[in-house]
Amino acid sequence: MSSKEELLKRLSDGVVDMEEDDVAEAAKEYLEAGYPAFDGIMEGLVDGMNRASQLYEEEEYFVTDVLLCSDAMYVGLDILRPYLPEVSSDDKITGVIGVVEGDTHDIGKNLVRIMLETAGFHMIDLGRDVPLAKFVETAKEENADFVCMSTLMTTTMGGMETVIRLLEEEGLRDKVKVMIGGGPISQKYADKIGADGYSQNAVEAVKLAKRLLNVA
């Protein structure tokens, strides 16, 4: 039987190498050996995803690779997650994420969500073409700490400013940080509409969220 370290390494490597079958096999062996699911996720799968994002940052990996890594990670998550001890999501920092109304390009948003989830944030994904009021309603209902919005299109970017105004009207703006991103978005635009931050890619988005929310 393999040691815990060996199995964690197989989980991590399986994610980095985009090998779904290897990840599934290692996850099952890991559970059979009686090791805690939480460590398997954090030190195995998430570690693999972190290594993948590092490779992406170094331009060794590209979007396709990260997508395939995250597929492999999700195969492992589906196996390990049912064995996690019940943790109330209240303990986690909650974010609401979505692509603003009128735009259905969600590949970037999905990457950001995956990265934020692997970094330990509880993410509520509203999907794409999200009505602007929905961001605010959800942030209120879920007592969210931050909202992430993206768009690839110049025609819909104005919606981000509307969401910020709506948060102000609801008196939530002080409690909820706003992060934005997407093709036409820039730091200049973020400053202009009064967003708390802009990030250029998924790896940067995690750093930004941690900085805005004072997470180590």
Binding site: M18, T64, I107
Partner: peptide, 10 residues
């Protein structure tokens, strides 16, 4: 869909 096309490359 774009993510499928990208994964098709592999």
């Amino acid at each position: 869909p774009v993510e499928m096309v990208l994964k098709d490359t592999v």
